[in-house]
Amino acid sequence: MKSIIILFLSTFFLLGSNPPNADEILKKVEQNLSSDNRVFESEMVIHGKRSSRTIVSRSYSVGDKESFTEYLSPAREAGTKMLKLENQLWIYSPSTDRTIQISGHMLRQSVMGSDLSYEDMMEDRKLTDIYSAKLVGEETLDERKTYVIELTAKVEDVAYHTQKLWVDSERFVPLKEEMYAKSGQLLKRTTLSNVQKIEGRWFPMTLVYKDMLKQGDGTEFRMTSVKFNQNIPEYLFTKAALKQ
């Protein structure tokens, strides 16, 4: 989940105004967001067919490639840890004292029944690295003026061929994101809301992630704590740390 947040943050944060074109917007977002490390606490609400579950986790990350997530609740998930190094993923479960590597095809499976796959969580490339951007218009969204940016993949190995972003024109926080298939079919939509100012940055505290082809209410993230520039020991990003 954390990676998703990183993705959005690293992409969309922007200080300044009157952006001349989309590439510049994205670039500025990344420049402004490059924080060496982050610690988040979040709640993920998964709307199942008969009930909803809330999963609380704390994530630490350094740069784009390393992240460590610990689940705090519910009791059943508490203590489960997930380590991502580059494109490898391990999950540790305290009840079995086992570290299981999630590899290859398993990465495309859904995480905890959410609308996200492990792979979605693993994406760590900058949007500007994989997409070329184009400003296609301006729209008002929830009484906020937004720039509408269209992203088209410029590398081959991306999950979504095109994306569309609605970026708040004052705060430069994305308020909506849509992912499209090569054919143009809308696949997923993320809505970002509850934008708050944290350590001088505007930050969307709530994200709703929705698979548009499926029925259901999607998966909801709520940030409960966001901290930048913390002291994260390097030791955390090793397999040995999973067992602790």
Partner: peptide, 13 residues
């Protein structure tokens, strides 16, 4: 390693 009835991760030895 599977998924619980509610979609959570299930680990059992």
């Amino acid at each position: 390693f599977g998924s619980t009835m509610y979609g959570g991760m299930a680990f059992t030895n």
